[in-house]
Amino acid sequence: MIGRDEVHDLLAREALCLDRRDWDGWLSLYTDDCSYWMPAWRDEENPTDNPDRELSLIWYQGKHNLEDRVWRVKSGLSIASVPMLRTAHQVSAILIEGPDTVSASFACHVHNVKRRTDHCFFGRYEYRLVHEGDALKIAAKKILLMNDNIPTVADFYML
């Protein structure tokens, strides 16, 4: 069973790590074999739900894929993140829905420093959480992006 306090702490910590660009801290919240999934939308009503036959916006299995994404934005080799955009994640309506599943709604305000523009990505998170020792970790995260008309870029740290 997962407890309400540790769930709230974990989700707040993830938001904080992303906004502080504490990448190691963020990665440490995930299990090594985690899945990280942001479906695309099949039509107006339904997100895609079979990643092997339908397109996702992001689909990874294994933390090393997230490490690759972190490396990319840290490397300075991706002009899409130079200078890095500023973010503020807001996570709310956190609800434990099953023995190991949690849903929440999110909004991430993004400020493009270079272009002096703002955008807000919003949608829902769905988590599957597991205990590793005393620590509660993310075994699976699904991001349902509601406004999927993307202004140029939506990298992992803006979602």
Partner: peptide, 26 residues
């Protein structure tokens, strides 16, 4: 084959991937 095509697509072509945003920012 479809899985490989889709995975490569997501990494390369998506605005949430690792190549296209570098083009469009340019």
């Amino acid at each position: 084959a479809r899985r490989m095509r889709i995975r490569n697509y997501e990494d390369f072509f998506n605005p949430t991937g690792m190549a296209t945003p570098d083009d469009t920012v340019c």
